[in-house]
Design a binder for these strands. Structure first.
Lengths: 140, 140
DNA sequence: TTATAAATTTGTAATGAGTTCAAATATGAA
DNA sequence: TTCATATTTGAACTCATTACAAATTTATAA
């Protein structure tokens, strides 16, 4: 089941043009965009789209577990089209967020020390591989 | 070395009344407060303190590795007086952030898949033990 | 001490992500 | 068609955080 329309219907969300378009963007580029980035992209295809619709749709996706909000940068929310649980790496230099597939013993836990777990978030901050290589070149 | 003045001086930060007061608050109550909570608390002791000084001081602490900002709630930054690395649990109901001491194989890593790691963040979301117990009582 | 420079604090204004809300539009059933 | 319901829109608003320049404090040196 990778049909986006089906995914929405299965979640009880009516697949409007706007919603489908937003989900399609999240699915095509897995670059963890901000709401503003999504709005700008969709606007080129649906010029009448409003910022509020983007926020409304994203909220709907989140409430239904289709999309995961990432609170990593501290300045704005990034959105992740959730497939399988995974970790993230945030580059403080270029701002890019990478997916990290690593083995973590806590990704499946539903209870820790008496607290009921609904979501698990693991991420790292630093300088990404790409930016490190650029630095090296600049020095030589 | 648990003397707060020493900690600041060791980090190259001049221990002004304002800065000491903020750090003392973070040290006394480990409740991961927001900047607003800190400001309100300090204001009762230093009525002339300004919001900007709170933000300035926190930024200084963060830049020098004394305090860790937590981007967990999505609406505002929480501040943690960093001692040892640990995980967090955020209760979606009461908003409280708990420290979790759990064994994680990635808390000491300095490099993952070519990326240089500076910070590690692991946190969980859900309903805390306290709120769960309240729910149970309400049902019986 | 006094003068001068540097660091710190303050308060106001600005920024910008995200929300609110009522009006407009589209959809779907009878 | 008619009516009710769901969705979208756009403008106004909220609120955490930042920018910045003036005021104050602290440090330094003559």
């Amino acid at each position: 089941m990778k049909n986006l329309k089906d995914i929405l219907e299965y979640a009880g969300i009516k697949p409007t043009i706007e919603r489908l378009s937003i989900l399609r963007y999240l699915d095509s580029k897995h670059d963890h965009p901000t709401a503003a980035m999504i709005f700008n992209e969709i606007e080129t295809k649906i010029p009448t789209i409003s910022k509020t619709t983007v926020y409304n749709s994203l909220k709907l996706f989140i409430d239904n577990g289709i999309v995961t909000p990432l609170y990593i940068t501290g300045s704005e929310v990034r959105y992740d089209f959730a497939t399988k649980p995974h970790h993230h790496f945030f580059c403080e230099k270029c701002g890019k967020i990478y997916d990290l597939i690593i083995d973590c013993p806590y990704m499946k836990k539903t209870k820790i020390q008496g607290h009921q777990i609904k979501q698990r978030h693991g991420y790292f901050r630093g300088i990404c591989k790409n930016c490190l290589e650029k630095e090296e070149k600049a020095q030589s």
